[in-house]
Amino acid sequence: MNMNKTDLETLKKDDIKTVSPIERREFLKIGLAISGIFAGGTILSVVSNMNKVFASPEEFSEKYPYKPHYSMVIRQDRCIDCELCMEACVITNNVPDYGYRTMILEKEVPDAIGQKKEFIPVLCNHCNNPPCVRACPTRATYKDKKNGIVMMEYGKCIGCKTCVVACPYNARYFNEEKHSIDKCNFCFDTRLSKGEKLTACAAACPAGVRIFGELSDVNSEVYKLIHQIAKPVWVLRPEIGAKPNIFYMKG
């Protein structure tokens, strides 16, 4: 920095009175985001977020490993547990009643001030480094080279259920009718490959919780939601190092 002593001395004193309330609010917001105190400290500070949150840090904002790089941002605080997403998923993908591809978890905080309950939708995280794909003995589950979706080749599944145990997100179940493990594939076979732009769950959500899109497209909503620092963005179970493509945020 080229700031010499005289420059500093000529600066006006930065009194609290000279800072506008808007400036203060913006400053505080950044402070909270950086210190990561939201959601009871479960959120990572923005410093490490750069590494942890973005699907692929080395290619952050420049390019993502897949084209299109499908991703979903879940605006958690908007979820009201109406379960329309789950219903749409069941109908679209023919999910049996004993299984699910997506679920809404419920968190209760009885001693919280005001709102005491929140809902957390979960689904396959389509990880960039998927533990299930490594574990599968027959490559029945694989990461699509083009779009990064973690898919199933049902006929190859031997039903050893190692992928079910390997998944950090409880995203897999054995489907009796298919005689194979079944899981979310971002509705690739039922919608995306037929020209639809959204997954069934994202299309069905009345509250705009599930924002689905292409992370490698700088104009997409998911790109914009993730590449900002005013609001914290996080992923579930970052310590596993699976590099998930489902992001969470509030507000």
Binding site: P137, T138, K156, I158, G159, C160, K161, S180
Partner: peptide, 10 residues
């Protein structure tokens, strides 16, 4: 294992 015969093949 749900599909042991597939195991031998794949």
């Amino acid at each position: 294992v749900e599909n042991p015969f597939r195991m031998a093949l794949y």
